[in-house]
Simulated assay, not measured.
Amino acid sequence: MNYFVRSFIDWIFRRRSAGVTLVKIGVPLFAVVLVGLTVGVTIPTSHGPFIFSWDSAGSTGALSWGVFVIASFIVLLGGLLIIRDIRQESRKKAIVIEARGLRDWQGQPLASAVPSSIPGRREQVIIDLRQGVVDGQIVSPDAAIRRLASLPDDIARRCDGLDRSDISFVLGGLAPVPFLFLLGVIVDDESRTFIMDWDRTQHAWRALADEDDGKRFVVTGLDAANAAVRRVALCVSASYDVLEADVRIVETGVPIIKLELEGRNTSSHWSETKQQQLAQQFLDTVMSLAQQGVTEISLFLAAPASLTLRLGTLYDKRNLPLLEVNQYEQGDPKRFPWAVRMPVAGLPQAELTQR
């Protein structure tokens, strides 16, 4: 039933083709002329019946030829518009990038859930990071980083010869936070990017189509950064809580800046507008730290996959501080046993930091 309703809504609000519409108008006109349709209407009046008749095969030959010419022009124009639309559509490409990195599970591919409103032929790119993963715990993060490192060349090959306006990206994935953030950094936001997320209750990929509830990050601790501070710990709690006691195990003696989402839970991220505003708050905070002289940020991020990807796409590779994104492991006494340094601020490749 859900599939039927979604499909029906997509069909109602589908993009209409002007060429197809013109052909639908022109073909019936051809039928009127070629079939020899006769139309007659009699209307009784006080002065006798009023008769209107038209016979395409009769004495109104000039009118029939006029209709034929008009119908030919409409159909020809419609055909040209259809050819134009097909050529434009053939140039467009939607590169669907899905990161798989939690468990040995195939599931529904992201490409099959991309809405029809996103134009272009689909090209599926699955980045399987599960080599070295045991039930969601990363055993060999360096192997996963190497797989992500090859993605820029793959993207460049797929985009070769295409105009940037004809390319769009669809991102989604179930993977550890550092890898999702790194994927966002690699893809960047220079092309149109659509982000989807996995709904654990519906067991399906979903677009971020809910209403904005107006809840935003509460930012605290910015006053602790000053001209003498070069490194800070940035704690972003968008789903679960990032506990200061856990952060202090690996980051001692550095200021802690917190971004805590009001009313946060694991389902408070399904609005595109809300995510854009949260991402802007994150970016503004990082820019503020950079203006105060901070050169290194250790990011502790508890957020849904879609928001993590979005933050990565917005992080400026040249003008913002060095950034390492920490991986949380509840069963590890260090809590954050490793992190990934992002390829930003002059760092050419992502690097693994083991603790």
Score class of each variant (00 low, 15 high):
F13G: 06
G26Q: 04
L37W: 10
V41H: 09
P44N: 10
I51F: 05
S53W: 07
D55Q: 08
S56G: 11
A57Q: 10
T60N: 09
L63V: 15
L63E: 15
G66Y: 08
G66T: 11
I74C: 05
L76R: 09
R84G: 08
I86E: 14
Q88K: 10
S90E: 12
I95M: 10
R103K: 09
R103Q: 11
S116T: 12
R122I: 02
R122G: 05
R122Q: 03
I126Q: 03
L129M: 00
L129G: 01
V139R: 08
D142E: 06
A144M: 06
R146A: 13
L151T: 00
D154C: 02
R158A: 02
G161N: 10
L162W: 02
S165C: 04
L171H: 01
G173H: 07
L183H: 04
V185F: 06
D188G: 12
Q202S: 10
W205L: 06
W205M: 00
L208D: 05
D210K: 11
D212W: 01
D213C: 04
R216C: 07
F217Y: 08
V218G: 13
V219L: 14
T220D: 09
T220H: 06
L222I: 11
L222R: 14
A224Q: 15
L234E: 08
S237Q: 02
S239A: 07
E244K: 00
A245I: 08
D246E: 11
V247T: 05
I256V: 13
E260Q: 14
T266A: 15
S267D: 15
H269L: 13
K274W: 00
K274Y: 02
Q276W: 10
L278D: 12
A279W: 12
Q280C: 05
Q281T: 10
F282Q: 02
L283W: 07
S288N: 13
L289P: 06
Q292P: 08
Q292T: 13
L299G: 04
A303D: 06
L311T: 03
G312I: 15
N319K: 12
P321L: 09
L323S: 01
N326V: 02
E329N: 07
K334A: 15
R335E: 01
V340Y: 00
V340Q: 02
P343R: 04
L352P: 00
R355P: 15
